[in-house]
Design a protein around this nucleic acid. Structure first.
Lengths: 353, 353
DNA sequence: CTCGATCCTGTTATCGCTAACACTCTAGCC
DNA sequence: GGCTAGAGTGTTAGCGATAACAGGATCGAG
């Protein structure tokens, strides 16, 4: 990253030494302040001067220094996204939404990933992005690491957060933070209800890590079950948030013949379960109904195509970016919607028939 | 992003106004230069002074200004990744690798996505990242937009590139750029050979967009076919780089009963084809063998599990980051490997039997 | 007891840019 | 025809840090 400032050839070589605003001014025969005016499209510069300056800029290959600009101006147009993951669908999609909105606003986006949810790692990460004079930060608080980072953020840095649900009610963090979230509870309730309506006696649930011990998806699932008077099976907790983990856990779960419907924490898990069903000789949806969460692109092309809850993560990201501005109240993005495809069907009457 | 600098309450409120290095110095009763020394772990500062300064820093909640530091030091520890996409598996994974390496090196990572491959969009994007005094840039040159951005990059900005193959031989861009790439040709050759070995008369190919009109995957496929003396079918070009596009194109292709093996440009396309096979009543691998590229996490859990070529994109990203340093020659990352699973099998003797 | 070496700390100049103010013209006005 | 408004440009200060040099103590050695 360190650029060697020396240039043995002196000023012969136009290449090596980066031109500054003063060089441009000198070349154009105007003060460097006038150059600044031209660059920033400030009024009161004659067309002739403008042309001369632009010509000098082109000739010298001049590019303004971001650092100097930020320093003089007192702020930099940057958002830093604080997240524990950049590859999982929901995270990547949200990040994409933030990026789109930021790009449209001419704001640069930086990423800082949280290596773990250990307090010292969180502290280090937060430390690095907490330059209050620089830009803003958006934290993806979908998991514990994110939630902790959000709380660790100093009150004087401009920030907003995208979360699985409204954490404001549970956190001590200041009002300075702004939030966007999905109504996970309602979404899970609908999905569970869909399965119940199909005639399933009850619905099993495979959980994903959450910001809290009990995630909102789990909460909604339980609520629907209780409202319907169905029994509430024990929640399955795979050893990790991956397809392999879900597959492993499902292999175990599917030994139980009373399991006819499963609500998965996300589509990756659903895929793991579908494979486990295949491994156990179970047909979907005849023997087992599966519902996912997220609606990843692959969901529609699987065989059978996956019934899942669609979330507009990109919109969530865009919204989180907007919340950085002033005068906006926390609000939800478009409600999640259940997309019924082929992986859910009527309950079989009795497996042992 | 603009922070309001005024603070009605004056200095009563320790919260609002960001402390500078001078404030810390004043609070600790030393010059701000000494504070700088403490912050940067420079020698020749007494322990007592250090303690006093650290206490003042903690009390004032002081954070150094990135911008000021960058300006004074002449460079900023930032890499900007220039890419046309952040969500597709290969891109996201490579970005992840870059991020890991950068984080380990204490370098911040920024993202700039290319909205299109139109020259003016490329120019705008390149413009924004070409501050030679700031950090370095890594371009993901997997597609045309990326390749163009790479060429448009001024010679005086430190950069490296991750590409589908060694573009150096085709581009006019200076030596200042450094490269990492996979051997796509060989990988495609192996995959095609695998299918041929299974007894397939020939292998059809669905292409993905490339930096050039003929991608290296296509090149390797053709080479294997010719070496085996097999006929070279016309390449299928879906209307876009998505599952839906591949699905659509495959629906058409599979009308042809002579098609028994398909090499897809990537795993997403493979999924689209597998679904199309299902829609056409074809069984995999009995009636049709399918091979993908990338080895996305889902590949192993599909039913049937997908035979595909594994690429270590994260390693590619890490390598691209390393190349930013000095004294390294361009080199390839671990060779791609064919992972044989369930989607490929012996050719059926004759469909019309 | 004086002197140079070593430690510690302060002073000054700069990085490249923007903001605020000052100044010089040229018009347009009564 | 002197005066004011405002366009066009230059001058002077910083922004918050680092780097290079300068200076005051402290200390062992001759």
């Amino acid at each position: 990253m360190i650029v060697n400032g020396h240039n043995g050839a002196g000023q012969q070589e136009p290449e090596a030494a980066a031109a500054s605003i003063r060089d441009v001014g000198a070349a154009a025969g105007v003060s460097y302040q006038t150059v600044s005016r031209v660059i920033n499209g400030r009024p009161n510069v004659s067309q002739e001067t403008k042309d001369r300056v632009n010509a000098a800029i082109a000739e010298l290959g001049y590019r303004p220094s971001r650092a100097a600009r930020a320093l003089a101006h007192g702020s930099d147009r940057v958002v830093t996204v604080l997240t524990s993951n950049t590859r999982l669908y929901g995270y990547a999609e949200t990040l994409g939404g933030i990026e789109e909105a930021a790009r449209a606003a001419g704001v640069q986006v930086a990423i800082r990933v949280l290596e773990s949810d250990r307090p010292d790692d969180i502290a280090t990460a937060v430390e690095g992005v907490s330059d209050p004079r620089a830009g803003a930060v958006i934290v993806l608080a979908f998991d514990r690491a994110g939630a902790r980072a959000l709380q660790a953020l100093p009150a004087n840095v401009r920030s907003s957060a995208a979360a699985e649900s409204y954490l404001g009610r549970r956190t001590s963090s200041a009002d300075s933070a702004r939030w966007t979230w999905f109504d996970d509870i309602l979404a899970a309730e609908h999905a569970t209800q869909h399965l119940l309506d199909l005639g399933h006696r009850t619905v099993h649930h495979i959980a994903i890590p959450s910001t809290t011990s009990v995630g909102d998806r789990q909460r909604g699932w339980k609520r629907a079950l209780e409202a319907a008077g169905a029994s509430v099976p024990e929640v399955v907790r795979p050893r990790n948030w991956s397809m392999a983990g879900a597959h492993e856990a499902a292999l175990e779960l599917l030994l139980d013949p009373t399991v006819t419907a499963v609500l998965c924490g996300n589509d990756d898990q659903a895929l793991g379960i579908m494979r486990a069903a295949h491994d156990r000789g179970l047909r979907i949806p005849d023997d087992l109904s599966v519902v996912g969460f997220d609606d990843v692109p692959a969901a529609a092309f699987l065989t059978p195509a996956l019934t899942t809850v669609r979330f507009d993560f990109a919109a969530l990201g865009r919204r989180a970016f907007e919340l950085l501005g002033d005068g906006l109240d926390p609000a939800q993005v478009a409600a999640p919607a259940l997309v019924v495809r082929e992986s859910t069907g009527p309950a079989r009457q009795d497996k042992d028939d």
